[in-house]
Design a protein around this nucleic acid. Structure first.
Lengths: 347, 347
DNA sequence: CTGAAAGCGCTTACAG
DNA sequence: CTGAAAGCGCTTACAG
């Protein structure tokens, strides 16, 4: 690679000091600098195609204008969409984003944090995994700017932007009950993370508030590392026995996808035989024969707000912002009222 | 943020020079260094939780161990999956990845290139867009290490790792013809990029080699910036008139998804009324009622090879590697032979 | 076996 | 209005 032009090169060419070149190109002390000289410097800089070396700049200023983004898996549409929103918001303020996938492993998460900090990122956006609580507490204690995204730890007083998971699920279950469904199952993750337990809590509260006794066998918790098998098994169990469930709520896009696949394979009629509520908006739902009722996360708001909060924290260290954003329940045919004869029957 | 510990801090604590600390922690000149001193330095470094400042290191060594990845849109599953593979391969060699989305705009692509180069990335992985040819030529001429991925410019002698698009489509169309279909349509992008024109060429060659006269109205080119409307329109046109097509090949995951959505909305029976070949593997296809025949890209190989080629280029500048990887046609029910009565009829 | 010194490309307080 | 100088945290050729 040809040598890049440096401030020194420009200074030499114009016959001034490096200092002056730096001031001019950074638009500092404009009022005190000779206009003609400034003009000349700008011209030469352009002619030599000067591009500042951000590394050198960073070493001096201690700012890299780089953010570190840690997601569970960038290949997951949820993470990828979020990444895109964050990229755009960061770019708007001339920040660039390093990314890494933790695969839901605390150890990989820690490694990414270390790597990013060694690269002097100005701040971190972290979708935390199970077991990362001590690491997050450590970041907090060290005064490193970060914002948790999508998941957070209720016992830690840190900034975060997350979904109001309790409300999201409660609303969905209430909607099912209002539509005449009583035996309502839920497929969720086997995880101690707060956002997951909140979903279970929302589910149970909704049942409870409607005087429907919660049945343990209605709540299926699957393992992330055996998703396909566990969802299939959970689905079978929910649909068999004396009293199969009449409706199922899935609590992530991947769970919804796998659940719908089961429905298709078993040729179950939705909503006549089973009502379904999915999670997240996905193009994939468009291919399912029944338009799906789903819990829509405010992705755009979540990504933008998290980025904004982080950038504000960089400007004003120490301030803590916590946001639980509400989900929207998009109601479609997959949860049509149970007690009404299906319109299809009249065709 | 508390001050990080530097080499100086360690040197001070141990009572040796910064030089020595640097040598020890980088495992250099091991044989000439006093074991006891080295031991002590390591202990203190650990006690003070020393983490090297990569920025300072980079300024000196001119290596950042960072790669810049430019995709069309990180939110697209194809880009996101590729990003994940690249991340893993880069991580294996202690590289970190900066990413950015060009939105298929040459200008955004150029901006990303500049930003990444200013941040002194060691190399670039670029999914080029229409109009980026001069920019790529410029990179090449400046001796900047990069590898094009997924797309390349045939007139430029640069490293690239791409799909053999001609073969991919040819194979799919040949398969349709072998299965008894004659009137075969294709929905592709309206783009001058080589990988797109190669798809059209593969399509036409396959028809030609089988003595099926190519019909202009069979080849639909849609605009990226009006995808939904254009695909719907293209689909309608392919299915109407005197001689509607009997089969359609879609040439991207997004086009396939939109096409399948049309099929679902219009309640077309696949493959009885229309055979379909999709592009890329997507979980979404699992929700479509008919298992889909699709063109499978060797994503893993593509991402890994591209990253490896780039890292090799960093070690041995100037060498050029070009790879066209073959796609695999995964044959399923959506292209069942036309001339056989559908098994369904016997049920 | 060890360390003083130069230098990577910038920024900026200070002096003139 | 302008510039010499220090320094960010490292690496490494060189001297001893």
């Amino acid at each position: 690679m040809n040598k890049r032009t440096s401030l020194k090169d420009i200074a030499g060419a114009v016959g001034v000091s490096i200092t002056l070149v730096s001031y001019v190109l950074n638009n500092k002390k404009e009022n005190r600098i000779n206009k003609a000289v400034a003009q000349k410097i700008r011209e030469v800089a352009k002619a030599l195609n000067y591009q500042p070396n951000q590394i050198a700049k960073s070493l001096k200023t201690n700012k890299t204008r780089t953010l570190g983004l840690i997601v569970a898996d960038i290949a997951n549409p949820f993470s990828a969409s979020l990444a895109r929103i964050i990229e755009d918001e960061a770019d708007r303020q001339q920040y660039t984003v390093l990314f890494g996938s933790s695969d839901e492993k605390a150890q990989k998460g820690q490694k990414l944090i270390d790597t990013f900090l060694n690269r002097q990122v100005d701040g971190l956006l972290i979708a935390a995994t199970e077991g990362m609580e001590p690491q997050i507490a450590d970041l907090q204690q060290r005064g490193i700017p970060f914002v948790l995204i999508d998941r957070y730890f209720p016992h830690l007083r840190t900034s975060y932007v997350a979904l109001n998971n309790y409300q999201a699920i409660y609303t969905a279950v209430q909607h099912l009950i209002d539509s005449g469904y009583r035996r309502i199952g839920m497929v969720t993750f086997n995880s101690s993370l707060f956002h997951i337990s909140e979903r279970a809590r929302g589910y149970q509260s909704a049942l409870n508030d409607n005087n429907i006794p919660f049945q343990k066998r209605w709540l299926k918790e699957v393992r992330v590392d055996n998703l396909i098998g566990d969802v299939a098994k959970a689905f079978r169990e929910l649909r068999t026995g004396q009293q199969p469930v009449e409706a199922i709520v899935f609590t992530s896009n991947s769970l919804s996808l796998l659940g719908l696949k089961q429905i298709r394979l078993l040729d179950i009629r939705v909503p006549q035989e089973l009502a379904v509520v999915g999670f997240d908006e996905t193009e994939a739902y468009d291919l399912f024969y029944a338009p799906l009722t789903f819990i829509q996360q405010p992705l755009q708001a979540m990504g933008q707000l998290a980025t904004k909060v982080l950038l504000e924290t960089l400007a004003t260290p120490g301030q803590i912002t916590q946001a639980n954003l509400d989900a929207t329940l998009v109601i479609q045919a997959s949860t049509k009222p149970h007690y009404l004869p299906s319109p299809e029957l009249f065709l």
